[in-house]
């Protein structure tokens, strides 16, 4: 093989880390949630890459096909995507309430208001 065997993994790791960076470094709460979403989506890519079989078909049984990609990671990630969006929704609702209570959704400014 070429040097591509681990290419998927490494790009996925770079993606994860860019999401993680955004969620730590940026002060805006919605930005943090965007970073979190990128982080999670990259983990989904990790799972799907693990499940991929070259020259295999999508795991929908069809006559004459004998090589499929692994369906199990797909199942897990379907669940994880839904869990992710549920978390995002709750986080956004919190951000809206925080804006109502403090008049800002910037983390640094929240710290400046003592109570």
């Amino acid at each position: 093989m070429t040097g591509l065997e681990h290419y998927n993994y490494w790009i996925v790791i770079a993606l994860m880390m860019s999401g993680l960076y955004a969620l730590i470094a940026r002060g805006n709460l919605i930005r943090k949630l965007i970073g979190l979403n990128i982080f999670q989506a990259s983990v989904f890519l990790l799972y799907i890459s693990v499940g991929f079989v070259r020259d295999g078909a999508a795991p929908i049984l069809a006559p004459g096909v004998d090589s499929y990609s692994n369906p199990l990671p797909h199942v897990l990630i379907l669940t994880a995507i839904v869990v992710g969006v549920a978390t995002t929704a709750l986080g956004l609702a919190l951000a809206v309430r925080i804006h109502g209570a403090y008049g800002t959704i910037d983390d640094d400014q929240l710290d400046r208001q003592r109570d």
Partner: peptide, 9 residues
């Protein structure tokens, strides 16, 4: 609210 958000992240 802030405590909850930070915990969520």
């Amino acid at each position: 609210l802030v405590a909850s958000f930070r915990y969520l992240i």
